[in-house]
């Protein structure tokens, strides 16, 4: 019997996007599973003040990685105690391509996210959600961050 054991959860650092976490907890609570939390950051290149470089991309990345991991630690706390093994990953690059890469390279059976498009507009899905639905090589689980009940 196929069991749900390996999941990739994409977060954007905003609270509405965390709506997926309640559903993941509910989905995995009965069996325990491995859940990888992923945040993708797009970091600009070198920051200049006039003609003087003030910070380089690698320094910005280091700071962003630490911040991202701290954020994911906070989210991971909500999944603990349910037999779920949580790992955290902060990546840099264009969000759609990076998530697809991680999805392809990992053993995840599904990639999950809460789409937080503007409620009320006809196109209520974020670009990431739409691209994943179209292109991900694995199953895609989409909750809506607004206008849908929480887990």
């Amino acid at each position: 019997m196929v069991m749900l054991e390996d999941l990739l959860v994409v977060l954007d650092g905003q609270v509405p996007g965390e709506r997926i976490v309640g559903w993941i907890r509910r989905l995995c609570r009965t069996s325990g599973a491995r859940v990888r939390l992923l945040v993708v950051r797009e970091v600009e290149g070198t920051v200049w003040a006039g003609t003087r470089p003030v910070a380089f991309a690698s320094q910005l990345e280091d700071a962003a990685r630490l911040e991202g991991l701290a954020y994911l630690d906070g989210v991971a706390g909500r999944l603990e105690g349910s037999g779920i093994q949580v790992s955290s990953d902060v990546r840099f690059g264009p969000s759609i391509a990076t998530v697809l890469d991680v999805a392809r390279d990992s053993r995840a059976q599904l990639v999950a996210l809460a789409a937080s498009g503007d409620a009320g507009r006809r196109d209520a899905l974020g670009r990431l959600a739409r691209q994943l639905l179209h292109r991900a090589p694995i199953a895609v689980l989409v909750a809506r961050a607004r206008d849908q009940r929480a887990a």
């Binding site: 019997m1 599904l110 090589p137 694995i138 895609v140 809506r144 009940r149």
Partner: peptide, 20 residues
Amino acid sequence: VERAPCPVLVVRPGSALGTE
């Protein structure tokens, strides 16, 4: 996905979750 009252799981044929 835009209108369902609950989350939607889209499964690909031949993928890990889609075989039984």
